[in-house]
């Protein structure tokens, strides 16, 4: 074993299309390596839940306080696009689960296929999100395009307050709904981008045959990250698009 500090544990490749995995020298066994990484990743995911949890708390607080604002705000969003994106993410979560399963069962081709489909799902999601953001920007509901405008001396206001447009001008604290919408969906969207990047990264490893029944840890962890992205959206869709 590796207790002498000279030899590392090697997990043999199950076939010619795979490569063996060398357990990192600071771990005694593959099980220890797997469990340590997995525990660390679950801790990270717990912090992710708390990150989004704070935003959800803000949502519920203002939803209860300015119900009318949220009702009108939700009507400005296209629920059909939201439903399509929900379906896309659920499907991509399924392809991700199948990708992990393919790696666990040493099916290299299927692993690459399912991971590729998951990236495709991420791209479709981001494409639809771009269409939505563009429309909201045109209607003056998103003020990012004015973020770097200077202070308006004449009106004694920052431009993104006075330019705030559309029907949200007529409801109390109309900026709140789209501020929360943009913050939550943008941070979620950032996770989609990072998740897609991570999947492409494990695809490179999968193409080299690094992942098989003996070693599939990176695929497993990236899969967990991707499912978390799906998990958050499961709550975002009804709260933002179908405002109860």
């Amino acid at each position: 074993m590796s207790h002498d500090g000279h030899h590392s544990v090697v997990i043999p490749a199950p076939g010619p299309e795979f490569v063996p995995h060398t357990v990192a020298h600071h771990f005694d066994t593959p099980v220890q390596e797997f469990q340590a990484a997995k525990l660390g990743f679950w801790l990270f995911l717990a912090t992710e839940i708390l990150l989004f949890g704070g935003l959800f708390a803000a949502y519920f607080y203002y939803h209860e306080t300015y119900a009318e604002t949220f009702r009108v705000g939700g009507q400005q969003l296209d629920w059909q696009l939201g439903a399509v994106n929900t379906t896309v993410l659920l499907l991509s979560s399924w392809t991700m689960a199948m990708g992990v399963r393919s790696a666990q069962t040493s099916q290299k081709g299927k692993t690459l296929l399912f991971l590729g489909l998951t990236v495709l799902g991420a791209l479709i999601f981001l494409g639809i999100k771009y269409v939505e953001y563009s429309a909201k920007n045109q209607h003056g509901l998103i003020v990012f395009s004015h973020l770097f405008d200077g202070y308006d001396q004449a009106n004694k206001q920052l431009p993104w307050f006075q330019d705030y447009g559309g029907v949200m001008k007529d409801v109390p604290h109309g900026h709140l709904f789209f501020a929360i919408y943009l913050t939550m969906t943008a941070i979620h969207g950032l996770h989609v981008v990072i998740g897609a990047g991570l999947i492409i990264w494990v695809m490179k490893g999968a193409a080299k045959g690094r992942f098989h029944a003996g070693y599939f840890l990176p695929v497993d962890l990236v899969g967990l990250y991707w499912h978390l992205v799906d998990l958050i959206w499961i709550f975002l869709f009804p709260l933002l698009y179908l405002v109860p």
């Binding site: 074993m1 997990i11 066994t29 593959p30 099980v31 220890q32 390596e33 003996g214």
Partner: peptide
């Protein structure tokens, strides 16, 4: 002691 995981992740 760790025999079941010697060659795999368990």
């Amino acid at each position: 002691h760790h025999s079941h995981g010697a060659l795999q992740m368990g």
